[in-house]
Amino acid sequence: MDVFITSKADFDSSIQRMIQQNEIYGVKRKTPSFAFDRLVAAEELCLDYDITVLPPTKYLLPPTESLIKFKLAPEPSIRSSAEAQPCILIGIHPDDLHAIKLLDAVFTGSLTDVNYLARRRATTIVGVDCVNPWPYSFAASMGTAIPPRIFDLWLTDLGDEYLVEVGSARGEDLRKRYLKTRRAREVDLRQRNKVRQDWLKKYQLSLDMPPQEIPKVLDEAWHSPLWEELGQKCLACGSCTMVCPTCICFDVRDGIELNLKEGERYRRWDSCMFDGFAKVASGENFRPTGTARLRHRLYRKGKYMLERYGELGCVGCGRCVHACLVDIASPVAAYNRLAKEAR
């Protein structure tokens, strides 16, 4: 394992140099919340944050994204608009990185979404352990509070220093070019393990079962009264899905320039919680009720994604728990309740 130590003072000046030479998106304070945004100065970067309003997946699957560009005249022609600028994402939390692992499985599996792949390849990931989990998160009990090994660099706050783990050749290149480091010693690694254990204890919500058991609970829960109970309160606002790091559903639309000669096809975030999501042109709506839509969302998170892509569709970040206006979106509350019903 390539693990290093850098002092926080050195790290700040490294970030300043990085900003001058790269496009960097990092976590900034946006009182009262935090958000990923373009960094222009090192002091903007905030690595001891609790949660960002939107997950960093917005850089891999943007809210709107051009898919193809076309010309109608003189002759019709079409080209792909998949392209991406190299950038560095700094400050990703472990649960959000687990979400990116799922997105990788979806978009670069048996079929490749080249728009996603172009952005993913152009993105260098510098993650950080979560020092201050917010009260809505249950990542520790989902097993997602420790990062999967798909980062380029990983930081752990050890007080006056960061422990820096290198996860890829690209990460090693970044370290060599910008960071002033010394090799980590055994004592540093022990310290990392210790602080990680301390932080895991700070999570206030927790799943009452191992996360792999969620599909088994759901297998018995199709007819639970819970769905109707929650579904009839649902406003179909889509807030839970807009803030979710694993929500990837999109709509596809065409836009045309005022000259009526050229335009583009783009995708934009959509939500399975919207009432028209499963409606077809003939007028038939295959998921017409809040009850059906809410059940679908929680099955997709807790079962379907795992069956199809090998990763759970919920990473326990808790954004939906907080975003829901009528307090019905919490996966952990639903899964715990269903497990209790099953017993």
Binding site: R79, S80, A82, T112, D113, V252, R265
Partner: peptide
């Protein structure tokens, strides 16, 4: 990268 599956 390959060709885009969105390209008609």
């Amino acid at each position: 990268l390959g060709s885009s599956l969105f390209l008609p």
